[in-house]
Nucleic acid binder design. Structure first.
Lengths: 223, 223
DNA sequence: TTGACAATTGAACATATGTTCGATTATAAT
DNA sequence: ATTATAATCGAACATATGTTCAATTGTCAA
């Protein structure tokens, strides 16, 4: 007969899992048993070993026996840049402001995109933010409903850069290639078959960021 | 006086670097000094240590002293899926065929995209391939010159999926949302302002793959 | 050729690190 | 309360692994 109900994973186990991820992210190699122990305030290495065995049986981690630091999360952590999705971007909405001092990096996967770091510019990755395109209003920027645009905050832009712009007078958000000339600004759609917009010098124009990347996921759109 | 010219990194060093990447990718932790030695056929641990010191001085790796497996590439390897770019996709060109038995995974970064694995569908990642869009011919699929399209090989498709299609009679490659009905096929552009194409039953049509993702990098388009 | 330094070797060493096991304590079902 | 099992502990153990050093060999420049 079963004398005890089989407990699932407790808070300690999750603490270990989180630590594994955190440590790996920081060091690029897994922690030792003793380092894990230190983190969860357990001195006995056999105790930690005990926890790890449980986690392994639960399929949460994998272990290489007799190998130092031979622990890893079963679903390995990727070395990717996690970019917070601040909100929607649409024609009638102002662009949300990104405050890098606030951590948007919650556990919630839904509010971040992970981009392979090799695809991103090297500098200032922690300031990048992402917006989810809503509606068809960005079609002239070759951007579709549901696309994720990754932006680098910027208030200025050079000619030819694709920027996110807020036009206060028109209450209009738009993504365009940016050109400045003596008469004002020229905003060119990415789609060459569409007409550029001319903004006179007098009209205000707020550049919110430069578009660094566009990501479109098309997993089983079908029913 | 200098008695010898200072040699740079030799083949051995690069072999070590490649091994570090390879080993890390496979084990999710770095190799030991002795494992490195085994790979480059060097028994003396001090010799390997010597190489590692050189690599460290050259800034190619980082080391944590007195820590097992405390070696890592200075530019850390990411846990991403490496997708080979088979070639261009353009209106007049047939779509290159992907043969997964051949390894396209050369050292050359130019011929692969790395995508954060969290962004990709879980299954059959090793069969994915990528094409670089050339020209404006895919504009009606909201895809721009220079974009990278990631495809999953497929000869069939369900309604509503975006597929890469080769139309032999028209010698035309195109990316469209795919619909089948009694009269034949309907290929809808992603851009709703454009007209769908109707393909009669009689006309041949080769589905080459389903579009899984579109990536657009826009780093400093400006001059 | 020869001097100077790089490269290589081998072995000893220190310790970082996983493993094992018996004993003890806590917990829940009976 | 009793009992079976889980959880915890501590210590000993085995070895995986980084470090060090003296000695040897190789190579280039003068």
């Amino acid at each position: 007969m079963m004398a005890r109900k089989p407990k699932g994973l407790t808070e300690v186990h999750y603490k270990i899992l989180r630590f594994l991820e955190e440590y790996q992210r920081e060091h690029h190699y897994p922690p030792t048993i003793r380092e894990i122990g230190k983190h969860i305030n357990v001195d006995s290495t056999s105790q930690i070993n005990y926890y790890l065995d449980q986690l392994e049986r639960h399929g949460r981690i994998e272990r290489d026996r007799n190998v130092s630091r031979g622990v890893r999360l079963a679903r390995p952590i990727s070395d990717v840049v996690r970019i917070p999705i601040l909100g929607p971007i649409a024609a009638g909405l102002p662009i949300p402001v990104f405050d890098p001092s606030v951590s948007y990096l919650t556990d919630d996967e839904a509010f971040a995109v992970e981009i392979a770091s090799s695809l991103l510019p090297a500098a200032e990755r922690d300031k990048l933010f992402a917006l989810e395109v809503q509606g068809d209003s960005m079609i002239d920027a070759m951007i579709n409903d549901g696309d994720i645009v990754v932006l680098k905050p910027a208030a200025e832009a050079h000619n030819g850069e694709m920027v996110a712009i807020w036009l206060p007078e028109r209450e209009e958000t738009t993504l365009k290639y940016f050109y400045r000339d003596k008469d004002g600004y020229l905003l060119k759609p990415a789609n060459p078959s569409m007409q550029p917009i001319r903004i006179p010098k007098t009209e205000p124009l707020e550049i919110k960021g430069k578009v660094v990347m566009v990501v479109r996921r098309i997993e089983s759109v079908a029913a």
